[in-house]
Amino acid sequence: MDGEPLVRWRWIGDHLGYLWGLLRDHAVISLVPVLIGLALALPLGLLCTRFPRLYQPLAAVFNVVYALPSLAVFVVLIPYTGLATQATVMIPLACYALAVLLPTTVDGLRAVPEPVRQAATALGYGPWRRLAAVELPSAVPYLVAGLRVAAVSSISLASVGALVGRGGLGYLFIDGFQRTFPTPIVAGIVLVALLALVTDAVLLLARRLLAPWAVRETVVGR
């Protein structure tokens, strides 16, 4: 490493297309699982509010799942999904996302004040219409809070997938380490952090559009 600068800008300039490709792969393997997690968390969360007895055991299971080291889970899946496939990395990431999103979904659905719920019923809303028009919109701030945590951790965890052959930007860490060449590693860290930052900003924007009241409420609450 003697005399090697931390960043060789020329290398970055020469590899822009390559970095862009890795960034896109990274976005897919880290964010699609979050969407899958959300798609599973909504019905499961509804079930849990309908049958409250389900929630405690499910929450306990996902608490344990969330604590499993990602590398170990990737490895355990290899016999079923194969080395260096997207599924090996995406299935565990979807489980982590679900583990974060289930409690926030349940909290969100439970956050509707009882008088509001009753008012909706009194106005003639059936259970489905009440869900779509009252309960889900009220849950949006909670869902976004959960999605922010889930998306950002998913983006940073996906790079560990490089050790099992599919990690998007994580490949830059392996590449740089094997060649004792810090530039790709620095580029990888910066791009992962940027992707996380942009995703976070998009989620905040989504909350603004879907639940404009939430921003004001948090400020008042503090």
Binding site: V152, S156, V160, A162, G170, P182, G188, A193
Partner: peptide, 19 residues
Amino acid sequence: TGAARALPTLGLVTLAVLL
């Protein structure tokens, strides 16, 4: 903490060892 969560562990570890 939000920022810390976004940092990729593998990247930090490899960079620390190279340095």
